[in-house]
Simulated scan of single mutants.
Amino acid sequence: MSAAPFTVAIDGPAAAGKGTIARAIAAHFGYAHLDTGLLYRAVGARVLDGADPIDAARALDPTALEDSRLRTADVAQAASEVAVIPEVRAALLAFQRGFARRPGGAVLDGRDICTVIYPDAEAQLFVTASADVRAERRWAELRAKGDMRTLAEVLEDVEARDARDSARDAAPMKPAPGARVLDTSELSIDAAVAAAIAHVTACGGRAAP
């Protein structure tokens, strides 16, 4: 018999660590994980190929999440731009809500999981960090991939994306009233993961037997 649904919803800005935390929670509890940003990146990739963003969102196939380009900077930029389009967000809503209530538990991370996608999630987190810290993390990631943009350029991109995500009319990024705010600016990965797991456990999360 399948375990009852249990949803962990995680929001936060880019490079705050929410993806790492989401994957760790999913592994610890045995829950399925969805990086909802990949949905928007998949649409962004299609737009870079010349597709209309609304048509791309409505026709999105799960196999598109396997596109090797989804972690590139160009696709990330395109994803942030298509994410402000209400029709794109509406087209991807049902997929995310269905995933959230799958039997056995689910972890979703993104920008509006707690506020829009599934505000009734049993455990809610808003993972954040200062813009300077997040820029340094992203800069290090990019350099490891051979992208030689300066730290100043990466910080400018981070701040611009924050402004776009927070000010958009459709589902602006902000902490939900009931979400635990976890600032990772001065936390190690292990400490941040431990704090997140403790919160999910306190909310009733249980590892699969």
Rank of each mutant, 00 (worst) to 15 (best):
P86L: 06
V84A: 15
L34E: 05
G110S: 04
D67S: 05
R41M: 01
D74E: 15
A14P: 03
A27W: 00
R102S: 12
L65R: 09
L93E: 07
F29C: 13
A59E: 14
T36W: 09
A90C: 09
A83K: 07
L34D: 04
Q77I: 04
P13D: 02
D67H: 00
A73M: 12
P53A: 10
G30L: 11
V75G: 12
R97Y: 03
G110W: 01
I21K: 11
A14G: 12
A14K: 07
I54N: 10
V47N: 05
A51W: 05
L108R: 02
R41P: 04
D35L: 14
T72W: 02
Q77Y: 02
E81L: 12
R102Q: 15
V47A: 11
G44M: 04
A90V: 00
L65F: 12
Y31I: 09
R41K: 10
R58G: 14
A59L: 01
Q77S: 12
F95P: 01
G98T: 06
V88L: 08
G30Q: 10
G110K: 03
A76H: 11
A76Y: 08
R97W: 06
Q77P: 04
A42K: 00
R69K: 01
A42T: 08
I21E: 12
E87W: 03
R101C: 11
Q96G: 07
A90E: 14
G30R: 03
F29I: 13
F29S: 11
L48T: 08
L108W: 00
A45S: 14
V82H: 10
L65Y: 09
H28D: 13
A57P: 02
R89E: 11
K18V: 11
I85V: 15
L65C: 01
D112T: 06
Y31E: 13
P62K: 08
V47H: 05
I113S: 08
G19N: 12
F95Y: 12
R46G: 11
P86H: 07
I113T: 05
G105M: 04
L39E: 01
T36C: 00
V75Q: 07
G104P: 06
R41H: 07
V107E: 03
G104M: 09
G37P: 02
A94H: 02
V107D: 02
L70N: 08
D61Y: 00
A14S: 15
R41A: 14
R89F: 12
V84S: 15
T63N: 02
S80M: 02
A79W: 06
V82T: 09
D49I: 07
A78P: 09
T63M: 03
I113L: 02
A24V: 13
R97T: 09
R102F: 12
R58S: 03
D49M: 13
V84R: 15
R101D: 04
R58Q: 13
R41N: 10
A56C: 06
